[in-house]
Amino acid sequence: MALRRVGRATISSVERLGFAARFSLAVVVHAPAALRRLRLTLREIYFSGVLSLVIILVSGLFVGMVLALQGYDVLTRYGANESLGVLVALSLVRELGPVVAGLLFASRAGSAITAEIGLMKTTEQLSAMEMMAVDPLARVVAPRFFGGIVSMPLLAALFSTMGIFGAYLVGVRLIGIDAGSFWGNMQAAVDFRYDIVNGIIKSVVFGIAVSLIAVFEGYHARPTAEGVSTATTRTVVASSLSILALDFVLTVFMFRGLGV
């Protein structure tokens, strides 16, 4: 009995995975359509990006300020407090920027995308669109997907920038570390190719994952109020877990400590 339940759960999740793969392919096939409907995609960048700005900026600022306080506390023990800028910048650019911005993006924009598409399905708007010979994948899904992919790296970059600014406020202005060593050490230690580019790669990958999960869950939500709420929750949970898992995998590939 239990075995059968496990079997059924496995089959259904494998089925879902296959579904998701086919769906991703269909969305990618509609990429040109999204480019042609540039105005729609810009609108979605506005909805997923601009409207997430406040939460991203405020969180970035606070994360940076806390990092500075905690980092200063540890670094002074080793007499290395002029490295505060390096510590903060590397943590943000490599990890916290993409990951925390990704998590915030999933709960702010991802859930909104899922709920919107799910409700459009529930109220037969997608059905009506199909009857008007307009493909909802091209008109509704693709612009939201690509809008999310564009917004996410920008948000992550803003998050890191705000974080560094927050660290500057706390470290230099409040605690009184020398501004020259704060910025100078940071510039010397942060490598464009290995730190910044890798951070951008991460945020792009997270953007793809979150956007894909969000549109998939919305498009395949059961067309009821309950179905939409379940789908929204699934988006947040699945996106967050994927971000953390993908972050681990990407970090392993980007790791240079073993001298590879």
Binding site: E116, L119, M120, T123, E124, Q125, S127, A128, M129, M131, M132, A133, V134, R139
Partner: peptide
Amino acid sequence: IGMLFQFGALFTDLSVFENVAFPMREH
């Protein structure tokens, strides 16, 4: 083919005007 859906199925993100203009703009 034109179809009037039982519950209207108007696009909630568009105004009344844009709803009616939708098929014209698309096709």
